[in-house]
Write a protein that binds this DNA or RNA. Structure first.
Lengths: 243, 243
DNA sequence: TCATATGTTTGATCTAGGTCAAAGTTTGTT
DNA sequence: AACAAACTTTGACCTAGATCAAACATATGA
């Protein structure tokens, strides 16, 4: 199978590459997708989807960041995923989700109505194949995170998180060396890493004191030494966390 | 779509229902599957697949239990999944895995060579659909486990684990009330739950002291009070962990 | 501009679960 | 039966990270 043909492509005027769509889609398919496309914007803090709510659309993140999270009865919450630009929301064949999706920054989604989209998927096996790819990528990411949650120290967790944000930013913005956006509050980061917000703050301070990162303000950081940062993640040389 | 048609069915003389195969498979497809089927048995402790090793086969677990695990350079390990009878091993479109698969008890797999199986999948969209279902189930299970690893106490983790084993046993053996098999050592359970083996042992002792479970020997337990056990899991009434 | 709300940092203290150590159990082997 | 290897339990102690508390920033709005 030709991998180039499976590479994600741009779709209309979206600034991102839709991972669910690829160069094997013919013009007719792309036109159909284009015609069912609508944009939706949510403010930081808005809930995009509640757990158990019927799914009306699938979507790609065009800009901004959203979180997937699970909450226990007593309020303890754990993020189970982060949606960054170009990530896909949708579960082929499922009509609901079992976690909340919340915008952590202002976010714009490129939405496709679920039913027409699924009909298109049923007719086009290579799109179905691509969605399977995405599901397996998410599964790999979830399992990497299980290792992080179960076995890493607070410092390793923070280093892994910053490295992941840096990698993603490099992928998307092709290597700008400016300060990067920290799209979550300390509290949200804590919920992502299985820590408390105080521990997150302390570890940020420690990494800063050690000269590995710097903060221009509390929502923007710079990595001074990527190799040193990687050393702190606990992952082996080639790097465990991807996507 | 008719759900009954998507229910897993028995395949030849396997004592389990293959989740990857369903009643929509026609006789021709079933015959093809039957012809590419081989059984493999591994002793407790054997590695079924190493991380990074090319996948030669996909398989269903017929009997016994295997674990999926990730290991850090310094030896810390975290299980990222358990394979119980009827579970499926295989990643459509992927040629390798990024975790180790190890038999934790003697295990028998019903294997299908990967390439012929994938060709069959490509020809039969409903099997592809079913594999997508399985991937999404795994993803849901992984995310439930992320909540467990990130936010639950040792006691809640142990209770959740025992409840999960009990649920699965009820599903498979239709409600026998005898002692259930504990298919992992204390050390393996610790690696599954993000704990140490000593903590696992102490929590087992505590639950026993509280009359919630009993041990006939160290590899067999009885749940005296399922409702009380559920109370200890931290999950809400309807129960979070499925699979 | 001041006031109030929302985040963040830092310090002091506490504790769940880890670590270290030793004694029991079970299982398999000769 | 006796020994060894593997696994489990229990106790004593320790520590990473949680909890509690207070000061400090930064933003929003009247």
């Amino acid at each position: 199978m030709n991998n180039a043909l499976l590479a994600p492509i741009k779709c209309g005027d979206c600034p991102i590459r839709h991972r669910a769509v690829c160069a094997r889609c013919d013009d007719d398919e792309l036109t159909q997708l284009e015609s069912m496309k609508t944009y939706r914007t949510f403010a930081a803090g808005d809930v995009v989807l509640w757990r158990g709510e019927p799914l009306e659309f699938v979507a790609s993140v065009v800009s901004g960041v959203a979180s997937l999270s699970k909450t226990m009865e007593d309020g303890r919450t754990q993020m189970v995923g982060l949606l960054l630009p170009s990530d896909f929301i949708g579960r082929p064949g499922r009509t609901e989700i079992e976690f909340d999706v919340t915008a952590t920054t202002e976010i714009t989604l490129c939405c496709f109505s679920r039913l027409p989209f699924e009909k298109l998927v049923d007719r086009t096996p290579h799109v179905a194949q691509r969605l399977m790819e995405l599901a397996l990528d998410e599964l790999d990411a979830a399992r990497d995170w299980m290792l992080l949650l179960g076995r890493k120290t607070a410092r390793e967790k923070i280093a892994t998180f910053i490295e992941m944000l840096t990698r993603r930013a490099q992928l998307d913005q092709s290597g700008s060396v400016e300060a990067l956006d920290l799209p979550l509050t300390r509290d949200q980061i804590a919920n992502y890493l299985g820590l408390t917000l105080e521990t997150v703050s302390r570890q940020f301070s420690a990494l800063k004191k050690d000269g590995i990162i710097d903060f221009s303000d509390r929502r923007h950081f710079v990595v001074n030494d990527l190799a040193a940062l990687h050393e702190e993640t606990g992952d082996d040389a080639d790097g465990g966390i991807l996507s």
